[in-house]
């Protein structure tokens, strides 16, 4: 329904506001690297992935290292493979065309908001899409504002805006917590993420933590379909 689109869009407003503030930082960097507003707008529309775009702008120069850039983007965005896979249930029964069309506007932010909403049983592909459009509009406004006239907020750190993402993703993660059975996977995910973050460059830690958590959950005793939510979890 149309209502779901608007619900998704408005549910993403708080996080999209932080996206705009951070986008303005990218815009400022892009201006220093000599990107035009059209370069940036093309990148926003075609790539639409914050951290990857930061790295692309950082690597921007007279002779673009096209292949290195693509490889860096691959490594940073590898998590989208898992993000995409986790959206399977939401898209079940949808046409291929719907999937092809809607998957482009899936960012960390609207994905996380949608997963939290799905726990309540009220998420839909339109909710996801509405969020994607909201995040996209704020991302474009923020980055272009930064490019044209400096940042929307000149020192985001001063206002703890850099922590906005951590705080909101923490809140959304808590919303996804499935109870006791999630404790071992989350501990594994957290530990692996910290280790990977310390020893590996880039964004490997997200994928390693996420996959590690999922594998830990697979190793737990399989639940029979008849088992109830509140059942006693055997100590492992």
């Amino acid at each position: 329904m149309k209502a779901d689109f608007y619900r998704g869009a408005s549910a993403n407003i708080p996080i999209a506001a932080s996206v705009a503030a951070y986008g303005s930082v990218l815009g400022m960097l892009a201006a220093q690297k000599g990107l035009s507003w059209l370069d940036l707008l093309l990148m926003n529309s075609a790539v639409f992935a914050g951290s990857a775009q930061f790295v692309m702008v950082d690597m921007w120069s007279k002779h673009l290292p096209v292949i290195e850039m693509a490889f860096a983007v691959l490594v940073i965005n590898l998590r989208y493979l898992l993000v995409g896979a986790s959206l399977g249930p939401l898209f079940s029964g949808r046409s291929l065309l719907c999937k092809v069309f809607l998957m482009h506007l899936v960012a960390d932010e609207n994905w996380a908001v949608t997963m939290a909403e799905q726990r309540k049983g009220t998420a839909s592909v339109r909710f996801l899409f509405g969020g994607g459009v909201m995040v996209f509009l704020c991302w474009c406004s923020g980055t272009l504002a930064g490019l044209m006239g400096g940042g929307l907020v000149s020192h985001p750190e001063y206002y703890a805006l850099d922590f906005a993402f951590t705080a909101i993703f923490t809140a959304l993660a808590v919303g996804l917590f499935q109870g006791k059975k999630d404790i071992p996977p989350w501990l594994a995910a957290g530990a692996l993420a910290l280790i990977a973050h310390h020893f590996l460059p880039g964004k490997w830690y997200i994928v390693i933590g996420g996959v590690g958590g999922a594998i830990t959950a697979m190793l737990a005793a399989p639940k029979t379909p008849a088992s109830k939510e509140g059942e006693h979890v055997p100590a492992s």
Binding site: R79, A189, I206, G209
Partner: peptide
């Protein structure tokens, strides 16, 4: 079971 735990683990790994 693994796929059910994936979104939470992924998000937790992202923030920690």
């Amino acid at each position: 079971q693994g796929m059910d735990a994936l979104p939470g683990s992924l998000l937790f790994a992202l923030v920690i």
